[in-house]
Simulated scan of single mutants.
Amino acid sequence: MTYSAPPALLSLALNLVEAHVPVLPLRKGKLPFGNCAACTGSACGDRPHMKAAGPCQCPAPCHGWAAATTSREVLASPAWAAAWRQAGAVAYHPGGAQLTVVDLDNANAVAWARLNLPPTKTVATMRGEHWIYQGAMASANRVRPGVDIKSRMQYTRWYGRGTGPITVLPDAVRALTAREEATPPRARVASSSGGRATWDRSVATGCRHTETFVRTGLDRGLAKVAACREQGAGSQAYGVARFLAAQHTACPGPCGLGTLAQQIIDAAVSVGVPQAYAERAVTNGFASAGLVRAS
């Protein structure tokens, strides 16, 4: 049995599940409803699809994001009625819809995304924007100032359908969750090369650009990487590699891209990025432009 005259938020939730988006109600303040008495402190063992797989089959909206559902019957059931009457917003589980939300919490974060991430469907929020990509990944908070990744095992508030076409989840977003803080103390970080490689025309006999053009772009890019001393150097290295590689797509080659790549890697390692992560970020950046490092 369902209750009649559903409130506006429930009506919205029922519309969303038609698009196979798992939803749940939020209390005022954007928080999910607390667990029922039987589930307090995860005494029940949590829901079966959570990280700590348990036996809970509670009909009420317990366990935060894990309560999200695409069942119209569950959403409109008596067990959920009290929650909808008190709800202040609708949330959804991005990972359950095979989506990833890059939550940009302020204008600076939005400006950074426009420079460093592929454009995709964008939703305006109260303080910034949600950039929505097709594909799920691990969630992570504070991957850089004002930026959270919301996908698996997390919910996010529904602000609307947004504008623009959706883009497949790119490596640039996946790279944001790499644990750069696991780097050894900087005093013990070894450079990726004993003698640092330096780009010049001798390694770029087939490049159509002047040495001044290439070196100016490289120097600006290395400065951006070196400025990320606390976090974000790996993703910045990806963006620099992608930008520099894009400048050489029309060159007959060789352009000495391997040497450019090594200088970007060295810059990232110098501010604490793990060697393997720096190499992967740069390789992915070159690949996104359709080039390989050694060309």
Results as ranks from 00 to 15, higher is better:
210 T>Y: 11
68 A>W: 08
124 A>R: 14
233 A>S: 06
113 A>E: 14
140 A>F: 01
26 L>R: 03
76 A>C: 01
5 A>R: 06
206 G>Y: 14
42 S>C: 05
245 A>P: 03
152 R>F: 04
126 M>H: 05
64 G>A: 14
111 A>M: 02
202 S>A: 15
97 A>W: 09
186 R>M: 00
201 R>V: 12
105 D>A: 08
163 T>Y: 01
222 L>Y: 10
277 Y>F: 12
145 P>T: 04
290 G>N: 09
208 R>W: 08
189 V>I: 00
107 A>W: 01
174 R>I: 01
280 R>G: 04
248 H>S: 15
12 L>C: 10
13 A>N: 07
185 P>I: 00
128 G>M: 09
239 G>K: 09
135 G>M: 09
270 S>F: 04
37 A>S: 04
145 P>K: 01
71 S>P: 11
240 V>C: 07
213 F>G: 03
11 S>R: 13
62 C>R: 12
86 Q>N: 13
51 K>M: 11
186 R>S: 00
234 G>S: 09
125 T>Q: 07
282 V>I: 00
18 E>H: 08
261 A>K: 07
240 V>K: 10
101 V>Y: 15
33 F>S: 08
167 T>A: 12
225 V>A: 09
3 Y>M: 10
241 A>K: 06
269 V>N: 03
71 S>N: 09
16 L>T: 06
181 E>H: 15
148 D>K: 10
27 R>Y: 07
116 N>S: 12
32 P>E: 11
71 S>Q: 03
248 H>E: 15
157 R>I: 05
90 V>R: 11
53 A>M: 04
192 S>E: 12
57 Q>K: 13
206 G>F: 13
97 A>V: 00
9 L>E: 14
56 C>E: 14
61 P>Y: 15
12 L>N: 13
118 P>S: 07
112 W>S: 11
214 V>E: 03
229 R>V: 09
